[in-house]
């Protein structure tokens, strides 16, 4: 298939940037979107031009690096997939495809299609962990009995790969789905109870500091999330937060 690509090009974080138009020919419908971008970059290198910078790592749908907003949707028109799992058969011969970086004040563009998602890291550092003794006397995790439904819920939340599609797609650039998943995964488990209150308070505080918007429950994040993280976790975070802030002695 032959395609017209409108790709966001930006030299560095300070550059204003803009859309550039490229033509690409003979793309296989079986190739992935990232393979198509590899083809484009080969073409640009052969023409002596600067290749398009884009993030990618595992190409198996689990690293969450490929932060692309394709034709008006995070990770493109398919559901439950990252960009590497998006196949070119989702497009038609002759299509024009817009490729933009994820947009949010908290995700500044570094170059072309690469954004800085350090804000997610800082939210994690604020409370997305459990403190365990790793001196060699660590208790075997299996020694703690956990009910299957609880373990399943925790796992559902833990499938979040922190890709940022929720922020990119939310009309408010809200990070609530990400933070909710990271808060919830521990809240179901006994290991997460000790720091439960501070965790939600600190992570929400950091989320606000980073400049993400407020959640208005549109549900767009849940639809675009490649891992199908449910809005149920945002409700859980809200109740965790309420309970923690009421009981907090600070």
């Amino acid at each position: 298939m032959n395609l017209t690509l409108k790709v966001w090009r930006q030299k560095d974080a300070k550059d204003k940037g803009g859309l550039e138009t490229y033509q690409i020919k003979e793309v296989s419908e079986h190739s992935s979107f990232l393979e198509m971008l590899d083809m484009l970059n080969e073409q640009l290198i052969n023409e002596g031009k600067e290749p398009v910078a884009f993030d990618h790592d595992c190409r198996e749908g689990i690293c969450g690096m490929c932060s692309l907003y394709i034709n008006g949707e995070a990770h493109g028109p398919d559901r439950g997939v990252t960009t590497c799992q998006l196949h070119m058969r989702m497009f038609k011969d002759g299509d024009t495809i817009f490729i933009e970086p994820f947009r949010s004040k908290a995700f500044p563009v570094l170059k072309d299609l690469i954004v800085d998602r350090g804000s997610f890291e800082r939210i994690q550092q604020a409370g997305g962990f459990i403190s365990v003794n790793t001196s060699g006397n660590t208790q075997d995790a299996n020694a703690l009995p956990i009910a299957k439904p609880m373990a399943d819920k925790a796992m559902d939340a833990a499938t979040c790969i922190g890709c940022g599609a929720c922020v990119a797609t939310c009309k408010n650039s809200s990070a609530m789905l990400f933070v909710a998943a990271k808060v919830s995964q521990f809240s179901y488990l006994p290991q997460g109870q000790i720091e439960r209150k501070e965790r939600v308070l600190n992570m929400v505080e950091q989320m606000d500091k980073e400049g993400f918007g407020n959640c208005t429950n549109t549900g767009a994040c849940e639809v675009e999330c490649p891992k199908g993280i449910s809005l149920e976790f945002i409700a859980r975070m809200n109740s965790e937060y309420l309970s923690a802030s009421i009981k907090s002695e600070n």
């Binding site: 409108k6 817009f98 933009e100 004040k105 797609t169 408010n172 400049g211 549900g219």
Partner: peptide, 17 residues
């Protein structure tokens, strides 16, 4: 304010009412 630069192409109706 949380999204100072808008998308050139956006399809919000695809995922929210």
């Amino acid at each position: 304010k949380a999204r100072p630069i808008q998308y050139a192409m956006n399809k919000p109706s695809e995922n929210a009412s």
